[in-house]
Design a protein around this nucleic acid. Structure first.
Length: 245
RNA sequence: ACCUUUAUAUUGCC
């Protein structure tokens, strides 16, 4: 079963979805029982390539075959719904998960928070992340980053920046993604100077800017007409061993 | 510790 799981996941990641499904058939023919992880992998592969309905049918199949969906199963489906922006169904599935005594984890809340934030429903996003605190969890960087990113997208960089400060106070330390989100947020508002400051702070705190960070900044500097600064950054990224894309 | 599955940033795909 483990070998099949690995292969199915690997084929799926490389877009060879139908071969992955064939392997599942093959397991059935040989009497090898797919386990919960097998189903989770299949569900993820299908919903990642836009075949959510088919993914959902495997959710039904696993229940019929007496495999109890676990937290990963629900999280994977929630992520599929998130991609399709089917928020209400995501809420319903979340309720179903609770009704089935499946305990949501940080990934569950991270997925839901991001779904709401991407839909521009920042109040709901904040509300769902508050629910996680009530359950005794502390928000991690995925949660904060999803919220900060949402605020930046909706033009409220200041609120994003407040959350950034809050996360430091709560000892949930910002990571490369957090800084990149804020660099992008400030750039979009034309605050190139703040964006550059975030880059410096990120380096000061010991984080290595990623390719995305550079892409964001170089684009922003170019558009602001600061071609010299953009070029300096370009040389810096080459010096650090990045291959510009 | 890592060692089969899920969530956050730029571009693209849906």
């Amino acid at each position: 079963t483990v070998v099949y799981n690995v292969l199915i996941g690997c084929l799926g990641k490389h877009g060879r979805v139908d071969q992955a499904l064939e392997l599942l058939e093959d397991m059935n023919r040989k009497g090898i029982m797919p386990d919960c992880r097998t189903y989770n992998i299949i569900i993820d592969v299908l919903s990642s390539c836009g075949r959510y309905e088919q993914a959902y049918s495997f959710f039904g199949m696993m229940k019929r075959r007496n495999h109890t969906p676990d937290v990963v199963t629900y999280n994977t489906l929630l992520n599929g719904l998130k991609r399709l922006r089917r928020i209400e169904e995501a809420y319903d599935l979340f309720e179903e998960m609770l009704a089935n005594q499946c305990i949501p984890d940080l990934t569950t809340f991270g997925t839901l928070t991001d779904a709401l934030a991407k839909a521009g429903r920042m109040e709901d996003a904040v509300e769902i992340s508050a629910r996680l605190v009530k359950m005794g969890h502390s928000p991690n960087s995925y949660i904060y980053n999803a919220l900060i990113s949402g605020f930046c997208r909706s033009g409220q960089v200041d609120k994003g920046y407040e959350l950034f400060q809050e996360m430091i106070e709560c000892s949930c330390y910002p990571d490369t993604v957090t800084y990149t989100i804020l660099v992008l947020g400030f750039s979009r508002r034309g605050h190139t100077n703040m964006a550059m400051e975030m880059l410096q702070e990120m380096v000061r705190e010991g984080h290595t800017p990623s390719l995305s960070t550079y892409n964001v900044l170089i684009r922003s500097l170019s558009m602001a007409g600061q071609v010299e600064d953009a070029y300096t950054l370009f040389k810096e990224m080459i010096a650090k061993g990045f291959n510009p894309d």
